[in-house]
Design a protein around this nucleic acid. Sequence first.
DNA 1: CCCGGCGCCTGAGGGC
DNA 2: TGCCCTCAGGCGCCGG
Length: 276
Amino acid sequence: MPELPEVETVVRSLEQHLAGLEITAVDLHMPKVIRHPRPEIFTEEIVGKQFLKKLGRRGKYILLNLTDGLTLVVHLRMTGRLVYCVAETPLEKHTHVVFHLNNGQHLRFTDIRQFGRMSLLPTNQVSEMSGIKDLGPEPLDTSFTREFLKKEFRRRRTRVKPLLLDQSFIAGLGNIYADEALFRAKVHPERLAAELSPREVAALHKSIVEVIAGGIKHRGTTFRDYVDGEGRSGSFQHHLKVYNREGLPCSNCGKSIERIKVGGRSSYYCPYCQKK
DNA sequence: CCCGGCGCCTGAGGGC
DNA sequence: TGCCCTCAGGCGCCGG
């Protein structure tokens, strides 16, 4: 389930391969993944364009910048993969889009669950795209300050876990990194955001930044589906303290990690270290 | 504003 | 070398 660190890793790994390459043809095996424009127009417009040196990311959205002022926006959702590979690589099952490149290689989009989507639009319209327009600050941006978190938490009437998953509040956190950040800050996922102490908010701010930076440093978390732009797994799963660790001992106190539903999502936490 | 629930999908894993 | 059911969770959408 690609979250900010996974998406950032994909972008960085693709950047070094795609710069300057031209898209010569597109095989569209699953037209519904193209959200905009209509599939036929999509192919027509993207063929002949080259990837720029600098690709981008906003929240969990991959921004593949192209010549002629266009950007290919890709969201991997749950099981999507965007991988650069030699053309001879056997077509993996669930390969929905193949971009042929002028060096004979491929950029392939595969997605078991078919939730992932892509759009082609003018670069200057990306920030206004639905899904991107309302994103909150990037956790690693200078705009994501302790004061921002304090101010926003104070006026929200919701529990802290769903708030961390709300992309219009902070961009890029998903279930894994939200649970890890809460554990490291010793905050119970069901606590009301407005009721956190200044000390807790400060700790949570710090732990969000640390856990996201740690995820990027270890090239993402791979449980099953996630790989980077070269098909390589990440290793942050070895550094997780609570996520997917139900019944295992807490690294801090030794008590058993528990799983509850908060806002309809699994939340892993330590009932001793993260008191309600 | 805020919440819960559904739909989209496939495959893994548990119970029997 | 089964079968059925639940669940995994990102996001858009809908209704209360």
